[in-house]
Design a protein around this nucleic acid. Structure first.
Length: 481
RNA sequence: CGGGGUGUGGCACAGUUUGGUAGUGCGCUUGGUUCGGGACCAAGAGGCCGCUGGUUCGAGUCCAGUCACUCCGACCA
């Protein structure tokens, strides 16, 4: 049998229809179900378990750096939301409002939080008085609501789960460092936990967060060449502090405004995992966040001793790995397909022949290669196999990112690539938002992703790909979800 | 918000053109035979045909409205 053969017929092939493939995988892997509530999805146990593992990984990193978790109210009074002008303008079109409480019309309507800058600021105003109160390094894991017009599981829903970090600092320098540091936390998490390589950099003026001075972003590329904004960090300067009248007394007994940041990653990251690693047989989960790392399939389980051995192996492995033993009546072949759809990184087959040989079979989800291993050193073999899956996923994604990143020297070049080759386009830009608009118009949706951190210096004579004027930045462009 | 599509047992769909007993496959239950890549046989259970109203002796089918989902744009994490 060919290793590439598609064995699961219920999943549409990626090449046939990527959007349908995505929907099929999300449903077949039992990550979500559609709900009767417009724009909102049900995250099923298997999908939620992935989110819990993501939370654990990120939360540990945040706390290592001194952040503390808090919980802010779900509702934002309109007057509070309106204190920062750019912020409210950015979010107004997608706010959900509560106007009635019980039987009574509210005297002031309440916004269901789309993000919580204003709430944090209102609180910071009360608890920050001295340089000794700084920095404040807060984070919260919550749901937020943005009234989206159309929805897709994980990628765009009216309600979604995320974490939002909000920090206040004594100096601009400190706040700027926090902004970049947290983006690096995200990058590291994507690469080393999720096996997803990505471009990181700064958003252009046009694309930055409403109310921010600077926005940084991590932009992984999906299998089909489309970008997904994977997480953002924002430097606010003292704009919100001034709007909310947050001040502290510094070391020279002078009144100062603190400098602020915020940063967030949402359940959209699960969409990134699906579209980066998945294949025509379903999901493939990076081992570090897979709810099941090893699934044990007993073969010919009715035969004497097979189930007992399988159970023994399960118990033996459970202290080191997340293991599931499927001893249901379904056929072995059915189980193979089931756990491939669900993206379990490693399958362990154990049957009468293996037991006779004191061995078992390990099968990698990435390439379906079978390895016969002795039960004597099972733990280390599994450890190695899981690492191999992680590395293979990363390598494959990195090749995809690299092979679908192009450079454009002039506008014809750019338009040709945008039309014919899905992926990222590196091109010089003058810094004018008009050129971004024009490119978006002419290409039907290609936008600037970011000014990458690793961009080379601009040289004398470099010109904007769009208008031909003097270039200011190298920009990575692409379509996005 | 604009344009398309779809709503019929848990899932995928047929039936709607031409109104007349609610169907098929998968799944589910029970029993048996199987078992190293989605097994087979037999017997069962399960449906206000998205919702509301209208036309009709009679509506899954025709008409009007409405809601939801989905795909493609615009907006966004």
């Amino acid at each position: 049998m060919s290793k590439d053969k598609k064995l699961v017929s219920e999943i549409t092939s990626m090449d046939v229809d990527f959007a349908q493939w995505y929907t099929d995988v999300v449903k077949k892997a039992e990550l979500v179900d559609y709900s009767g509530v417009k724009g909102c999805m049900i995250i099923r146990p298997y999908g939620y378990a992935i989110w819990e593992n993501i939370q654990k990984g990120l939360d540990a990193r945040f706390k290592e750096l001194g952040h503390e978790n808090v919980y802010m109210p779900l509702f934002i009074p309109e007057s509070l939301l309106q204190k920062e002008k750019d912020h409210v303008e950015g979010f107004a079109p997608e706010c959900a409002w509560v106007t009635v409480g019980g039987q009574n019309q509210l005297s002031e309507r309440l916004c269901v939080r789309p993000t919580s800058e204003t709430l944090f600021c209102d609180h910071f105003k009360n608890i920050i008085h001295s340089y000794r109160d700084l920095p404040k390094l807060y984070n919260q894991w919550v749901n937020v609501v943005r009234w989206e017009k159309t929805t897709r599981p994980f990628l765009r829903t009216s309600e979604f789960l995320w974490q939002e970090g909000h920090t206040m600092h004594e100096t601009e320098k400190e706040a700027r460092e926090e902004t970049v540091r947290m983006l690096e936390v995200y990058r590291d998490f994507y690469a080393n936990t999720l096996a997803i390589p990505a471009i990181t950099g700064q958003k252009t003026e046009k694309e930055k967060f409403a109310g921010a001075e600077e926005t940084y972003t991590i932009e992984p590329m999906m299998h089909n060449g489309v970008a997904l904004q994977g997480g953002t960090t924002h430097y606010f300067g003292d704009g919100f502090a001034k709007a909310f009248d947050i001040t502290y007394t510094d070391r020279e007994n002078k009144i100062q405004y603190p400098h602020q940041t915020s940063w967030g990653i949402s359940t959209r990251v699960i969409g990134a995992i699906i579209m980066t690693h998945g294949d025509d047989n379903g999901l493939i989960l990076p081992p570090k966040i897979a709810p099941i790392q090893v699934v044990i399939i007993p073969v010919a389980q009715h035969k004497e001793g097979v189930l007992e051995k399988a159970l023994e192996i399960k118990q033996r492995l459970s202290s080191k790995f997340r293991v599931k033993l499927d001893d249901s009546d379904n056929s072995a072949g059915w189980k193979y397909s089931e756990y491939e759809m669900k993206g379990v990184p490693l399958r362990l087959e154990i049957g009468p022949r293996d037991i006779e040989n004191n061995s078992c079979v390990l099968v990698s989800r990435v390439n379906r290669e079978k390895t016969f291993v002795s039960l004597d050193n099972l733990e280390s073999e599994i450890e190695n196999s899981l690492n191999a899956v992680h590395n293979a996923l990363y390598e494959r994604a990195a090749r995809n990112l690299e092979s679908k990143t192009y450079s454009a020297k002039n506008l014809d070049d750019f338009l040709d690539i945008a039309e014919n080759k899905p992926g990222y386009i590196k091109a010089l830009w003058c810094g004018d938002a008009m050129c971004e608009d024009m490119i978006k118009d002419k290409t039907g949706g290609v936008k600037s992703r970011c000014i990458p951190f690793d961009a080379p210096e601009i040289k004398e004579g470099d010109v904007c790909v769009c208008c031909g004027k003097k270039a200011k930045h190298l920009v990575v462009w692409g379509r996005q979800y």
